[in-house]
């Protein structure tokens, strides 16, 4: 099957650079697409003119002041989520793991919604989300460490139950919220890029986490084969797991802070990359970042155009693209295994 080529030869023969180069091109195209579509369509020559400077038109203003910050932010959020998902899946050794499975987004949502009820807005909601995410991260870490043994199954169960608890609190908050605030709350929960602004912090988190996880990528390959096997081959499994847990959580918290809980990117992108290029994390991680960015930027472009001038929450679009894509992927896996 031509899709499933030999990863090891890719990683070893410098094909990595070629693949990353092509995906960077794809990323650029997806950003261009998203810049040109929206409530008003702007053709590509004007997009270039605006990007290269000099143009003082209304279109240039729309592109530089409205669309570009949002799209860059979206690309970063997509990368954050895809990387967090790939790390969560190897941490929990569970193909169904995704960035929100351990309750990070639940904690963030509860705090952000509380901030909205309290009448706060703007950056306070983002900070509330970040704080809530960290409360949840520490809660799950502490609860699943009592007694010493920190194994993937225990972390997963603890996280899923904590997430369910946050879910109940979210429903409670929605039930008692005034109708005037409900609409923006629901939008936030589904994931929106509308409030997102390009932030150096998010980019720094993404680049730092990518650099750190690339440096441990070979150990991650071993961890995917089981804790004992990884230990037998010289990986300090406990330290590695703590590191992955906090990296993935920081990535998720940063993404949620920027754009609420955008679903499916963190789940399907790593699987898509595994199917296309194999499971070697040295390729999987950077490719996931780029592809996650592309998917979110394209989904956002569609979210702004499908019912323009109104906007859909981008979380709806990623799920609408993500659900069929994931199902097709699952079929492919089943067929391949025959």
């Amino acid at each position: 099957m031509p899709l499933f080529r030999q990863t090891y030869s890719r990683v070893l023969s410098g094909q990595v650079l070629l693949i990353l180069f092509c995906l960077s091109g794809l990323s650029f195209l997806s950003i261009l697409f998203s810049l040109s579509v929206g409530s008003i369509d702007i053709d590509l020559s004007q997009v270039f003119a605006a990007l290269l400077g000099g143009a003082q038109t209304m279109e240039a203003k729309v592109i530089l002041e409205l669309r570009l910050p949002r799209i860059l932010s979206g690309f970063i959020v997509g990368g954050l989520l895809a990387l967090a998902g790939a790390l969560m899946q190897v941490l929990l050794r569970n193909p169904l793991a995704e960035p929100y499975v351990l309750g990070v987004s639940g904690g963030a949502s509860v705090f952000a919604l509380t901030a909205m009820i309290a009448g706060l807005s703007g950056v306070w909601i983002n900070l509330g989300a970040f704080a809530g995410a960290f409360v949840s991260i520490l809660l799950v870490f502490g609860l699943s460490r009592i007694g010493g043994s920190w194994n993937p199954m225990r972390v997963l169960l603890t996280g899923v139950v904590v997430a369910a608890g946050w879910g109940a609190l979210i429903s409670f908050i929605l039930a008692i919220s005034p109708a005037t605030k409900l609409h923006s709350m629901l939008f936030w929960l589904m994931g929106v890029l509308g409030y997102a602004r390009y932030s150096h912090f998010a980019l720094a988190v993404l680049l730092m986490a990518l650099a750190i996880s690339m440096s441990i990528a070979r150990s991650l390959n071993l961890l995917a084969n089981g804790d004992q096997q990884a230990m037998a081959l010289g990986v300090s499994v406990n330290q590695l797991r703590y590191l992955i847990y906090f990296l993935a959580s920081l990535l998720t918290a940063t993404a949620v802070m920027q754009a609420g809980s955008i679903g499916f990117i963190g789940l399907i992108i790593p699987h898509l990359v595994r199917l296309l290029f194999g499971s070697d994390h040295r390729l999987l991680l950077p490719v996931s970042v780029l592809l996650g960015g592309c998917l979110l930027v394209i989904a956002d472009g569609l979210a702004r155009t499908l019912i323009a001038p109104q906007q859909l929450p981008v979380g709806v679009l990623t799920a609408m693209i993500g659900v069929p894509l994931f199902l097709v992927l699952l079929q492919t896996i089943v067929i391949r295994q025959k």
């Binding site: 030999q6 990863t7 090891y8 899946q89 190897v90 050794r93 569970n94 193909p95 390959n221 071993l222 995917a224 084969n225 089981g226 004992q228 096997q229 230990m231 037998a232 081959l233 010289g234 990986v235 300090s236 595994r274 194999g278 499971s279 070697d280 896996i333």
Partner: peptide, 29 residues
């Protein structure tokens, strides 16, 4: 751990595979 892995090798009763991997990749680990 890493220095120990050059001295001591262990074969477990069973091996896991959660994510797809190639035979050569596994041997290379």
């Amino acid at each position: 751990r890493k220095a120990l892995a050059r001295k001591l090798g262990i074969l477990f009763q069973d091996s896991l595979d959660t994510f797809p991997a190639l035979v050569i990749e596994t041997a290379l680990t």
